[in-house]
Simulated scan of single mutants.
Amino acid sequence: MDKILELETIHDYHSFIGYETLHPLISVIDFSKVKPLRHARKRYGFYAVVLKDVKCGDVRYGKNYYDYQEGTLVFLSPGQIVGNEDTGETYQMKGWALLFHPDLLWKTSLGQKMREYTFFSYEANESLHISERERQTFLNCLNEIQEELERSIDKHSKSIITASIEVLLNYSMRFYDRQFVTREKVNHDILTRFEMLLNDYFESDKPETIGLPSVQYCADNLHLSANYFGDLIKKETGKSAQEHIQSTVINLAKAKLHDPEKTINEIAYEMGFKYPHHFSRLFKKMTGMAPTDYRQMS
């Protein structure tokens, strides 16, 4: 197993690729100006948004491999590992990248919003595939940031640069929303598999042995990251994945409440609740009445 190359700062990455550092906390990289590189497994200490302009083979990202195609945007957050083992071969990257360190966002409005950009936690096979028009919008944002970096740094630089990054990330959110729409059939298939997964789960003994299914459990079984899965379900149905799980739980519990031989506590344990009062609380929240009241009405 190759050693993981630790690239904690923007300067560390620049040293790796042979690039000039204009600002210690942010960089716009034109890979056509970068020398051919050898493969390496790298851990970044900064955010990276990478535009791959040409197909460049299978790249390892986390535990999986992904075949990058033209016009692919990849979002990396600090601590993530990306790259292939060093085989001695070199490759020429083509495209662009925006790198920015978390320290740049300290005491900024963007720093407080970064959690909203959930695509930084997506898996590689959930990357953003952009159109030529979207690609040009992305490059325009990079050009504005680069122009600011080439000016002398003054008291306005940080606010202007972070505002430009925020615009780029907001456009990325718009592009992802478009991708969710254009992949409607795929998304519908995932929703159907999600519903089947929940039905199979509650028909097994897993609720009593494992407990209630989590969003992470469902995402793992559908081979998606939890954030991408949650965003997909929300955009497809208007409800969160957690709300779908809770709705399934309550609908199945309603059927069980028609059986007078089962106590409320027994039903709660069968559904995966560790404590019966948690079941009663959720049932009342979802239906407006306690399980006992619902049973008396049925």
Score class of each variant (00 low, 15 high):
H244I: 05
V167P: 02
K262D: 05
L222T: 08
P260S: 07
L197R: 01
H244S: 02
Q146D: 15
T182G: 02
T162E: 08
A219G: 00
L252D: 06
N221R: 11
E266Y: 06
G238V: 04
T248N: 09
K256H: 05
S214H: 02
I161T: 08
V167S: 05
E195N: 11
N170P: 04
K155N: 14
A219C: 02
C218G: 03
N251T: 12
Y228K: 05
C218I: 04
S204W: 07
D220T: 01
H188Q: 15
H156M: 11
A226G: 08
I161A: 00
R174A: 11
N140S: 12
K206A: 12
L197C: 13
N170M: 10
V186L: 13
V186G: 12
V215G: 06
L149Q: 06
K234F: 14
G238R: 03
G211P: 11
A253N: 04
H258T: 08
I161P: 03
I250D: 08
N265W: 11
Q246R: 01
L212C: 04
R178S: 14
T162M: 07
A163V: 01
L139T: 09
M173K: 08
N187D: 09
Q179L: 09
N227H: 11
V181Q: 14
T248S: 13
N170H: 07
N170D: 13
R178C: 11
